[in-house]
């Protein structure tokens, strides 16, 4: 079953900025889906339209078969949204924010209290339930927004940059929590700037740039499109110039570090053999960027206005 279906969606703001240009997208039930793109690409506008915060100029959105236009109430009940910016009353108590949100979905207070306790405990905020939201740390505020989005048990959870500004330890625990939710059958869509996050969590991915979808596929197929991978090699002895290696592009970053672009068609062994012939020993090796990041940059660069018109 399709959890989210977007058809020919366009958005032009009053300022004249065309944020989305006829995008179509399907997210299947149970998927963990990433929507990636540079700043201003149209990710937040897409999420804004799906969560009814932005009016579409054209197009249709359906959530589990319910049209957001014609069956708005039914569609909205199935969605939980975690926005990018904090959007709760900073002076309200943590517990009240979550219970009130449940009330907005028509959940009676007794059940709302149980639901709030369940998610505040899961997200480590139960002890803070009587604190004002403004007293929470940034990471806690993000978790509060997740608890609030889940309190009505939505089938589709949409997270806009959920781990922005969150420390590594907390980010990992949020990844575990989201993976657990997805394991329970919830469909999750996230936008993120951390491509490592998308690569490790999501099975499907769409890349949006200048308001159009430039890629929409599963993670494995996407990564297979990566034609060149760049490695950083730390050398045992300093060198004065980058060695010439047949079939590889080599750049000297500093006397002890080489950057080598390895085409998919070439074996990595060949790099080491040629370096050995130049009497160069390699102490360690790492990827310059994660694979998805490298691919993302290539895809987005391809769509830069200057390049497109060239």
């Amino acid at each position: 079953m399709t959890a989210l279906s977007i058809r020919h969606l366009s958005k032009t703001y009053a300022s004249g900025v065309q944020a989305l240009r006829d995008i179509s997208l399907d997210v299947e039930k149970g998927e963990f889906f990433a929507l990636l793109g540079p700043n201003g690409a149209g990710k937040s506008t897409t999420i804004g339209i799906v969560s009814s915060l932005v009016n579409a100029t054209q197009g249709e959105v359906t959530v589990f078969g319910h049209s957001l236009e014609r069956e708005r109430g039914l569609a909205k009940k199935l969605i939980g949204v975690v926005p990018q910016e904090f959007n709760f009353n900073q002076f309200e108590k943590v517990g009240d924010i979550v219970v009130t949100q449940a009330g907005f979905y028509g959940i009676p207070r007794a059940r709302a209290l149980q639901q709030a306790e369940k998610y505040l405990r899961k997200l480590g905020l139960w002890e803070k339930r009587n604190s004002q939201a403004r007293q929470l740390s940034g990471g806690m505020k993000r978790r509060l927004m997740i608890a609030r989005a889940l309190v009505h048990e939505p089938e589709l959870l949409i997270l806009d940059e959920p781990t922005a500004g969150v420390d590594i330890e907390l980010r990992r625990s949020m990844w575990d929590f989201l993976t657990e939710l997805n394991g329970q059958g919830k469909t999750i869509i996230l936008t993120t700037h951390y491509l490592e996050e998308a690569e490790s969590l999501c099975r499907r991915i769409a890349i949006i740039d200048h308001g159009t979808i430039v890629e929409n596929t599963d993670m494995k197929s996407l990564l297979e499109k990566l034609q060149v991978e760049t490695f950083i090699l730390d050398l045992a002895q300093p060198v004065s110039a980058a060695p010439v290696l047949n079939g590889f592009e080599v750049r000297l970053r500093d006397p002890r570090t080489l950057e080598v672009a390895v085409p998919k068609s070439e074996a990595l062994n060949s790099v080491f053999q040629q370096l050995a012939a130049h009497d160069i020993s390699v102490m360690s090796m790492r990827n310059k960027a994660n694979r998805l990041e490298e691919l993302f940059l290539r895809l987005v660069e391809r769509n830069l206005p200057g390049e497109a018109s060239a």
Partner: peptide, 17 residues
Amino acid sequence: GTKFQHSIEEMLVSPMS
């Protein structure tokens, strides 16, 4: 105040009429 703090979004995303 609800508009200013963006907490109006809590209501707008909900199915309330």
